[in-house]
Amino acid sequence: MSQPDPRIRSRVVAPRFGGRLASDFAICYRGMAQATVCADVTRLELGCSDQGAIIAARHLTYGCPPAIAAAEWLCQRLEGETLAVARNLSVADVTAGLGLVGVQEHAAQTVIAALASALPPSI
């Protein structure tokens, strides 16, 4: 393991979005994805208002530092956004947001896959 980017390190050492959502949201979406190249798994929960705003995002992640950091980055990015904005987030956004390089990009792919599986098809 080479020296991790501070953006990854800080999110792994002190995660802020790990865990499960409280149950007091009008609508709750859940999704899960596993990395195709390793055993990383992310489970994502989005707590939303009636109007389609994401009030809270939480994740449970097993995996390498980029996997945890990617889930943390995504949750932070999602809170306060609409479901439509969430739908447009891409692997490239996560990669750029965390400075992921090379094989680390699998972490971005996993969390975007978890997001896609969480969002309702109509969005």
């Binding site: 050492v13 990395a35 390498c64 530092p65 094989v103």
Partner: peptide, 25 residues
């Protein structure tokens, strides 16, 4: 996951057997 544990042990130098973020995957 070993790398996440190693990174979480701030300022403790331990070794992992290489994992999915190393070059050879």
């Amino acid at each position: 996951e070993a790398e996440s544990l190693a990174l979480s042990l701030e300022d403790v130098a331990v070794s992992t057997g290489s994992a999915c973020t190393s070059a050879d995957n």
